[in-house]
C-alpha cells in the first residue's frame, strides 16, 4: 500500500501538469466553441430557409454518426493528404468542437422546440420583435431545459479528450501511459489517471447541480 501511495505521489505532479496543460484547456476551448457552433446549427435548423436546415441536418448527421476517433484521424492524419496540415492541438480542438457541437445542437433544438407554443404567442401579442422573443422568452427557458444534457455533453467531452494521445498530444492519460511504461506499474498509474478524471467529474457535477438549481428557481418547489 505504501508503495502504491508513493508511486501516486511521485507521478501526481506530471499527471496534474498534463491535466492543466492539455485536458482542461482543450475541454474548455472545445466546449465554448462547440456551444457557438451548436447555437448556429440550431438557428439554421429552426430557420424557415430550407438550404440552411439541410446544412444543419447534414452537419449533425455527419458528426453524430461517426466516431470521434475517426474524426480525429481524418483531421490530423487524413487532411495532410489533401494539402491541409494542422497541428495536433488545432486538430483536437476542431474535432472535439465539431463533435460536441453536433450533440449540443440537438440538445438546443429539442429544448427550443419543447417551449410551449403559448409562450411564443404571448410574446407575439405583446408585440415583441423576433430578437426580443429569443432573448427574453425562448433563450432563458430553453437554457434551463438544456442545462442537464449540456452538462453531460461537457463531461463526455472531458473524458473523450483521453483519445488525443492517438494524435500525439500528451494529455493526462497519455502521460499516465508513459509513466506506466517506465515503472511497469500499470494498475497503479491507470487507477491514478481514473482518479484525476473522477476529480474533474466531481467538480463539474457540483457546478452543474448549482447551475441547475439556480436556473430552476422559478419552478414550483414540492412544498409550495
Amino acid at each position: 500500500m505504501t508503495d502504491f501511495l508513493s508511486l501516486w505521489a511521485d507521478s501526481l505532479p506530471q499527471l496534474l501538469a498534463a491535466t492543466v496543460k492539455v485536458t482542461i484547456p482543450l475541454s474548455i476551448i472545445a466546449f465554448v466553441l462547440a456551444l457557438v457552433v451548436a447555437v448556429l446549427a440550431t438557428v439554421m435548423r429552426l430557420s424557415r430557409i430550407r438550404p440552411l436546415q439541410w446544412v444543419s441536418r447534414f452537419y449533425v448527421w455527419l458528426f453524430r454518426g461517426t466516431p470521434i476517433l475517426v474524426q480525429l484521424f481524418i483531421i490530423f492524419y487524413g487532411l495532410p493528404a489533401a494539402g491541409i496540415t494542422l497541428s495536433a492541438w488545432t486538430s483536437a480542438i476542431i474535432a472535439f468542437t465539431l463533435n460536441t457541437g453536433a450533440y449540443a445542437a440537438e440538445t438546443l433544438r429539442a429544448s427550443v422546440q419543447s417551449i410551449p407554443r403559448g409562450q411564443l404567442e404571448a410574446a407575439r401579442t405583446l408585440n415583441f420583435t423576433g430578437w426580443q422573443t429569443v432573448r427574453h422568452v425562448i433563450a432563458p427557458q430553453a437554457l434551463r431545459i438544456a442545462l442537464p444534457p449540456l452538462g453531460n455533453d461537457l463531461i463526455d467531452l472531458v473524458k473523450g479528450t483521453s483519445l488525443v494521445m492517438v494524435i500525439t498530444l500528451a494529455d493526462v492519460f497519455q502521460v499516465g501511459r508513459q509513466i506506466a511504461a517506465t515503472n511497469f506499474q500499470p494498475l497503479a498509474l491507470y487507477a491514478e489517471v481514473a482518479v484525476v478524471y473522477l476529480a474533474i467529474f466531481t467538480v463539474l457535477s457540483f457546478l452543474q447541480s448549482r447551475l441547475e438549481r439556480a436556473s430552476n428557481r422559478y419552478i414550483r418547489s414540492p412544498r409550495a
Partner: peptide, 21 residues
Amino acid sequence: VSAIRRRSAMVFQGYNLFPHQ
C-alpha cells in the same frame, strides 16, 4: 403586423405568463 398588434392585447385561457420572470 406591429401596428395592428400594438392596438390590442390578448389574455389567454392558459395565462401564458413567462414562468422565468
